[in-house]
Amino acid sequence: MKKVLSLVLSTVLVLGLSGCAAQGKSSTGSKDSKVIKVGASPEPHAKILEQVKPLLEKEGYKLEIKEFTDYVIPNTALAEGEIDANFFQHVPYLEKTKKEKGLDLDYTVKVHIEPMGLYSSKIKNINDLKEGAEIAIPNDPTNSARALRLLEKNNIIKLKAGDLVTAKDIVDNPKKLKISEIDAAQLPRVLPDVTAAIINTNYALEGKLNPLKDALIIESGDSPYANILAVRKNNKDSEAIKALSKALTSPEIKKYIEDTYKGSIVPAF
């Protein structure tokens, strides 16, 4: 019995050590994975990432792009480890999401700026806005505040001081404009139903709108809303993320953005 018990204990010990070794190998393999999964909005983020693929291939990495059409799931997917990084948002949005949801996320590089613009199918000039006109803006807090500040900068309304202002913070509205908050992705579709809409450039491009030609007013190039590569903090310094960050801010990508979007999207590096 003693010999049998000794044999069983030895087998368990060996299997336990083998299990630890296997787990260690798996963890190392995950850390050094040559496949990088990135979540991105279809336009322009996913298209920019397509240009990154050959650059990463030279470094021995394969880039997999997963497209998202909303502003919520990409950060959740990143935090839960479904993807290695995401590329769709600006810094204020990331910071707000981190605070609200307690996500342990960060970012590595600023890639480009997408100037937010006011579009209309009913008026040709911002001075044509009539009393009581309805203006649709994004309904997420950071982009809503950003849209309102764009109106203020063009002397259409006046707002209280603060970062995340809302329509309730309008202190002067001489034309008695009606501000409607709508999901950002739906704004191009509702354009025929409102007087005008302030639309993020990625959704404007998807809606076949040219920011430089079609926007009645547009953010200036000094906008603080640069789009970033978001990552998990515990993966920020991995070789794969470093390679991806370097490729996204390479001369080749800068030239691609400038040549393709001709000022409607501006490199931030």
Rank of each mutant, 00 (worst) to 15 (best):
V4I: 15
K25A: 14
L56I: 06
I157T: 02
P174Y: 11
A79F: 11
K208D: 15
H90F: 15
R189T: 13
K58R: 07
D140R: 04
I113C: 08
A215T: 12
I157G: 03
D163V: 10
A22F: 13
I218V: 07
T249E: 03
T249S: 05
K178E: 13
K254W: 10
N202T: 06
I48D: 03
I182Y: 03
E59D: 14
K62A: 10
K101A: 12
K208L: 10
L212M: 15
H45R: 04
I36F: 04
I65Y: 07
E239C: 08
A268M: 02
I228G: 11
Q51T: 09
I36M: 00
Q23A: 13
V38T: 01
V52K: 06
P211H: 01
P224N: 05
K233G: 12
P54R: 10
L205N: 04
D140G: 00
L159F: 02
A40H: 08
N235G: 10
K178W: 09
L5C: 05
L103I: 03
E219W: 13
E219I: 11
K246W: 03
P211G: 01
V190A: 08
T195V: 05
K25Q: 14
S180R: 12
G263C: 01
N127Y: 13
A145S: 14
P74S: 03
L15Y: 06
D84P: 04
G132N: 06
G39H: 11
L244T: 11
E219N: 12
D128V: 00
V165Q: 08
P44C: 03
S144V: 00
A40D: 07
A22H: 08
L159S: 00
C20W: 14
T76C: 08
A184T: 11
S220H: 13
N155Q: 09
I217C: 06
D106K: 13
K233P: 12
L103R: 03
R232N: 07
L56H: 10
S238A: 08
N75M: 15
D172P: 07
P141G: 07
D163I: 09
A85V: 00
I198C: 02
D259V: 03
V14S: 10
I83D: 09
T201H: 01
K101V: 00
V12G: 05
A196K: 00
E50K: 11
K101F: 12
P42C: 05
F68R: 10
D193G: 06
V190F: 13
